[in-house]
């Protein structure tokens, strides 16, 4: 498949193993994404509303506050975790910042 890859760029086995690990991580994070918004904020909202978080009914809090905080947490966690996985399979883009910037500054003043 990717015979033209240099060895230090990760082999095609590395790439498919990375992709499988990525999909597993994505599935678990999307379950949380669904659970806090559609689950706690909509489907089980009335049940959760019997509990209070300060002056907030809990389901209402998830719908208007909590889900948004969890969304931020999900992106931060994914960024951190996927980076570890990329490094394990040698497919990260850590040393490419210089290439990206030198390529982009050609036209800048």
């Amino acid at each position: 498949m990717a015979q033209d890859n240099l060895p230090e760029n990760g082999t095609s086995q590395d790439e498919s193993a990375y992709w499988r690990a990525n999909i597993r991580l994505l599935v678990s994070l999307m379950i949380i994404w669904f659970a806090v918004s559609f689950g706690a904020g909509i489907l089980f909202r009335e049940f959760l509303d019997q509990f209070m978080l300060g002056g907030y009914p809990l389901g209402f809090w998830f719908a208007q506050q909590g889900s948004i905080y969890v969304f931020i947490g999900l992106i931060v966690f994914y960024s951190w975790r996927i980076h570890k996985i990329e490094q394990r399979y040698h497919v990260d883009d850590d040393d490419e910042r210089s290439a990206g910037i030198s390529g982009s500054q050609e036209g800048e003043d």
Binding site: G41, I42, R45, F60, S67, F71, L74, Y78
Partner: peptide
Amino acid sequence: GYDASVYLMGWTGGYVLLALL
């Protein structure tokens, strides 16, 4: 009131899809 939660969750949850997918 509560019905407006659709905008709050809808317009932020999309960023999870963007960042992850």
